[in-house]
Each structure stands twice: as structure tokens, then as C-alpha cells.
Design a protein around this nucleic acid. Structure first.
Lengths: 345, 345
DNA sequence: ATGAAAGCGCTAACAA
DNA sequence: TTGTTAGCGCTTTCAT
């Protein structure tokens, strides 16, 4: 390989270029380009010669040069704007990431996962995205205050938001589940199961999901809804435990619990058990998400299953429409979820 | 399609280039370049004029062009070669990612997280990495069979492995904790606490960590070590539960348990409780990792805390040495861990 | 089917 | 301090 030094052709330890290949194969530069891009309209014999030269030189394309010439990069960013700790905690992120990767691979593109832990990082990330590193972005946002959104909106980078972006519902493209309806469904199921008081531990109330799941719960309970049986959580297992402890303190006679996420539900069950309550005999519990936690819990959780993969696929489709310029105006899509009945309620 | 001809200044809908800025500001192209790269050696007045033109045009640099001209990209990849599900499960990944991001930001560089779920994706990822998208890579590997390693080794991409790469210990640069010693420490602590039989649920035995933690356990127990009190796990909560159930079936009189990860320890405690054992009164339990699970468990886990952040920082330092060409030969680094005593043992 | 040549937008060396 | 110029390595017409 590096023997090439001596030869009249290549230079010391420089990465071989398309010209080196062309020279070695005795063809023009354009022909090499054709070969590495599918090999169409190239005589088989010539193609083989070129490929030989490529192997001999250990040539691989310079992506920067290709990007520059083509005007795009073939990479899509999956942006997780998550405050610190919880970066890798949300079970849906993994599924989103996997689905995106798989879909993109079909078209020879790559997924880049990026995250922003704080304001400064978010700004830095904005630079990255708007400067042409990627052709488009998929955004998973988790807090309301989103400096990234206006920033990206001002840039011309195509992007789609995962989840309803509060305050930007009309202006941006996004895909989301119908949180309100799903919560209504599972809470109704719970209300039909138990007679007594039913409480809830919500998600963060500054998020669209947190808010709407509470709305759905309230609608399902109707006049059985009691504001004093609402505890606010933050999706974490810990907050599920704490919220439940509080509820239990205030209302020892509690009979049912709608917990806005499975992870929090695991915490809730822990609190229930510590307080000597049996699930579901004394207190019935339902969760939300059908994440891995749902089947690891004891008893297994009755919960809501979301169409994450379909959401991912649709988001990508919308993004590609934007990238290709097929659509100019924002597109929104809401998908329904399904009830999964197990043994916790 | 350079319709740019018409207007004296800007053109229809093309992204403005450095030339547009130069023209509008009435300076040379080089001056604009200087301004956007720190503004050194440029008269303040001129700098302001250029910045004004930049704002007026909404100019931002074309990263591909810059990469091509500079010969590097300013991006580092964090490669998580994780088989499917567990992608976002390992609590350390988040901390690694955050630490890398933060460190890189100090030097104006970006972290790209990429993952490979299966063989095909791993190959595809190899393309990505070796083709000049990034200046270097940090690899978190989780299985032994690693086609990526030889592939990257053959390319000239600088990279550092997180964790000891079995079979490549001498050939590659890597950083890792001293699993054997750490396991010895915590298992010794456990052995000093309880009198009776002590068992273990290990990690996967094809991984260096799984293996060495078992070695450390064995060394700590000495002749109290019993091969029939060893269950093999796979780091998952579920496997911790299963392994413990098995151990309990075979040896109801079990008094202590060394569980090779906190997450598995949570499963183990669940199994113990289901079997009517109290922790630590009946069975003392120690974990490993000091992850979030350690303090969420009831009782809180006595465990081992690993210097993840230092590991990350050192890995990056080694990588940068390689990128800069300051070192040519592989570098290895092993860091010690510390015992954290809580209430599970 | 193939070679030649014109960019893609930027950096950096070189003059001035 | 500043403008000019020569690449960076590839894709893509445009002839042939």
C-alpha cells in the first residue's frame, strides 16, 4: 500500500484520491466517479480495472469533497434535547433511534444522534445543525422552553418534531400520539374496574404529554375526578414513588391509580407495597407507554401501547418530503394508541 | 445554474456564500474568512462591516466546503455497538455521552452518537466512520464478536475503545476500570459481613467485564467459593431476577449475593423478596456500577462506583494524541473504582 | 462509454 | 492588515 511512495504516481502518506485511482487504472477521473457511484454506463472490463486500482490503493471516497460537490450530506440528525440525566432513560428513544437508522439505511443515509444537556449546549447544537452538517433533523423535545425551535425555524434546515411542540402547533411539522384519548381509554378502563377513589400521578405539566394525559384522565373520571387526588411527577421512577406516597398519606382509602408513565408506575407499585397495599386487590394501577418496565413490574402493568415505529416512519416520510421540496407548508400527524390489559388492574 | 449574474449583490434563493458577503462588505474573500474564524488580524471597522453583511445576508458557513479545505471535520463519533434493545439502557452511556460532549465543546468540536444494532448496520457504520465523516471515534463495545474492530484498525481512523477489547488488548488503545480488583473489593466486603453461603449472578461471560468481575469474586471468596453458586446473567434486570431464583432454588440457605450490576441487583432483590427473604437480614446483597438503580432500590445498594467521567476524559485525551499524531503506538489505561457502602449489605 | 473541464465554497499561503 | 490565488477531492455536464 504505502509502497506507492517511490512510484511515479502517488505521494508519501497522503490518502489516495480519485485521481490516483484514475491514473493507476488508466482511465479518466469521471469514469472512476461513475464506478464508485454504481458503475452504470461503464464497460465491465473498465469497471473491474477501476475496482482493482481502488483495492490496490486502499482508496475510499472523501466524504467532505463529495458533500461539497453534491450539495448535501446524506446524514439526518436525531436531536434529543434532554436535560442531563434522563438522556438515555426514556425507553422510546431507543426504539425511535433504531427505526430511524433502519429506514435511513434503505436509502443509504446515516442517522446521527445528538443531544443538548443545557442551554449552552443547545446553542452549540444549533450551530451544528444549521451549518450544513446534516440534511434534516428529527427532534425529540422534552421541555417547553425551546430556544432551538425558533432558531431552526429561522434557518432553512428541514425538520420534524416528535411530539406536539407546545406553542408551535401550527407553525411546525410534527407527529404525535393522541395522549388525551389514550389516557381517556386507560383511565376509563380503570374507572370501570374499581369502585372507590381514583388518583393519578401526572407527567410534568409544562409538556404537552403531561398535560393531555391529565386531561384524558379527568374526562374519563367525570364527576369522580378529585383535584386533591392529583400528584405531579416528572416521568422518573422516583417521582412515581413520591407522588404515590403523598396520595396515600392524604387518602389511605385510595382504590385506583392512573400513573402517566410505566416507569413512574413501577415506583408507584413500590410505594404501594411498602405501605402494605396489594396490587391490584387493594389498589389497581394502570401505566402508560408499554415500555420494558411494564413487563418487568410485579404485577405486570395494564398500560397503553404507542405506535412508536409508525410514528418514526411517518416522521421520516414528512421530513423527506420537506427535504425534496415536495411540500412547503407544515404537516401534522396524530396516531392512536392501544390498550394493553395485564394484571395490575 | 449560477443565475447570480443579474443582481449586483445577492441572488435568488441560493444560500449566500463567502463571496456574496465579501462583495457586499466591499472586502476580499480572505478577510471574510478571517472574520468568521475569530476575526484576528482584521481592523475592527472592517470586521464590523463584514459582520453586518453576514447578518444582512443570513450567511452561515458551508461546513462541507470548510471540511474539505481544512482536511478535518471537527466531529468525533461515540459508537455504541449495542445489540438492539439495550441501546439506551446502560446508565453509563449517558454519562459518557455527556462528558464527551462537554469536553469536546471546549475545543469547539461536536459529538455524534451512532449505533449499530446488527451485523449489517455495523458494516454500514464502518463505511460511515472510515470515509471521513469524523476525525476520530470512541467505541463502547458490548459483545465479543466485533467485526468493527479489525475494520477500523485497517483504516487510519484514530479511535479509542471504552472497556477492555478482548483479543485486542495489545493492539488497540483503550481505557477501562479494574473490574477484577473492584469485584474483589466489594465481594470481600460482603464476605466479611455474612457467615454462610455466598453466591453470584455474573455478567455475560464473553465480555471482559463479566469475566473479570467473576474472577474478583472468586479470589475474594477463596475457599468459600462454590461453583454451584454461580448464575450467569446478561446485565438485564430480568436476568438478575432469574439467576437469583435459580440460586435460591438450589440453595435456600443462601446468605449473601454478589450481583455483577446494579440493575441485575434490583432484579435479585425482587426475587429475594418474592421468596420471602429480607435484605440484608436474611440475604445481604451487593451490586456494581453505582448507577441510578442503586439508590432507587430498596434497600439502597452497597456497590462499586466507577470513575466514568475520568475514564471519558482520559479516553478523549488519548484520542486527541492520536489525532494530532503525538503518539503512534497504542495506549492503555486502567482506573480504580471505589466501594460505596449503603444498606443492602 | 469515456475524457476533459467547470465548478462546489472555503482555507491558507503568498504578495502587497 | 488586506486581496489574490491556488488548491481541497469529488460530481456532473458537455463533448466526443
Amino acid at each position: 500500500m504505502s509502497t506507492s511512495a517511490q512510484e511515479g504516481a502517488a505521494s508519501p502518506r497522503r490518502r489516495p484520491t480519485i485521481d490516483d485511482v484514475a491514473r493507476l487504472a488508466g482511465v479518466g477521473r469521471g469514469t472512476v466517479s461513475r464506478v464508485i457511484n454504481g458503475g452504470h454506463n461503464v464497460r465491465p472490463a473498465v469497471r473491474d480495472a477501476v475496482n482493482e486500482a481502488i483495492d490496490a490503493l486502499g482508496y475510499s471516497v472523501n466524504q467532505s469533497a463529495r458533500n461539497l460537490a453534491r450539495g448535501h450530506t446524506g446524514s439526518i440528525a436525531f436531536v434529543i434535547s434532554e436535560r442531563q440525566e434522563r438522556l438515555f432513560e426514556d425507553p422510546n428513544f431507543g426504539l425511535f433511534a433504531r427505526t430511524f437508522s433502519r429506514q435511513l439505511r434503505h436509502s443509504g443515509r446515516h442517522l446521527l444522534i445528538t443531544s443538548a444537556g443545557d442551554e449552552e449546549e443547545e446553542h452549540f447544537l444549533g450551530d451544528y445543525l444549521t451549518v450544513g452538517h446534516v440534511d434534516g433533523a428529527l427532534l425529540a423535545l422534552t421541555h417547553d422552553e425551546e430556544p432551538l425551535l425558533p432558531r431552526l425555524q429561522a434557518s432553512k434546515l428541514p425538520f420534524v418534531v416528535l411530539g406536539k411542540p407546545l406553542g408551535f402547533e401550527k407553525a411546525l411539522s410534527w407527529v404525535a400520539i393522541d395522549d388525551e384519548n389514550a389516557a381517556f381509554t386507560v383511565a376509563s378502563f380503570l374507572a370501570g374496574k374499581v369502585e372507590g377513589a381514583i388518583g393519578t400521578v401526572t407527567g410534568p405539566l409544562q409538556t404537552s404529554s403531561g398535560l393531555e394525559r391529565l386531561d384524558g384522565f379527568r374526562r374519563a373520571l367525570g364527576d369522580r375526578y378529585r383535584p386533591d387526588l392529583v400528584a405531579t411527577g416528572d416521568w422518573s421512577l422516583h417521582s412515581g414513588r413520591q407522588g404515590t406516597e403523598m396520595l396515600l398519606r392524604n387518602h389511605p382509602g385510595l382504590r385506583g391509580l392512573f400513573i402517566a408513565s410505566d416507569l413512574m408506575a413501577v415506583g408507584a407499585i413500590g410505594a404501594l407495597r411498602a405501605a402494605g397495599r396489594r396490587v391490584p386487590e387493594d389498589v389497581a394501577v394502570v401505566g402508560f407507554d408499554d415500555s420494558a418496565a411494564a413487563t418487568m413490574a410485579e404485577p405486570e402493568l395494564t398500560t397503553i401501547r404507542n405506535p412508536i415505529e409508525r410514528l418514526a416512519i411517518e416522521a421520516l416520510r414528512i421530513l423527506d418530503d420537506q427535504i425534496a421540496g415536495r411540500v412547503r407548508s407544515p404537516v401534522q400527524l396524530v396516531l392512536g394508541s392501544e390498550l394493553v390489559v395485564r394484571s395490575s388492574a
